[in-house]
Amino acid sequence: MIPYLFATAMLLIGLYAIVARRNLIKIVIGVAITEYAVNLFLILLGYRAGGIPPILSKGMDLNKFAANSVDPLPQALTVTSIVIGLGVIALLVALVLRLYEKYGTLDESEIKRLKG
């Protein structure tokens, strides 16, 4: 229960950065933190107390292994989720660079004012 609450706290900090910060880089940082929190939560869900990684080594009994291993399914889905997170960050940073070139500032409210 307590680790889940830590992950939720991280998610809320990321959301706070996205909503309340004015600087575009801070918003990108908020998105990154939110992604970390979600990935962490999925992995926490699949953890078994005292579990072994889901990799079979030589001479291991299959039934005993299945009773002791952590859950491989959320791990497999999280791998791709992490890589997609990188793609999202790259796209956001590309947009931020373009906005800085056009307006010469990273401040959201400045950009809104200059658009006019």
């Binding site: 940082i29 992995i43 699949g46 997170g85």
Partner: peptide, 24 residues
């Protein structure tokens, strides 16, 4: 948490992500 594959992917992605953010 018993997820070595994800730990490796996370280190690689984190490095790239840091480079991209530093560029910005």
């Amino acid at each position: 948490l018993g997820a070595p594959d994800i730990a490796i992917v996370q280190v690689v992605v984190e490095t790239l992500c840091l480079i991209i953010l530093l560029r910005a």
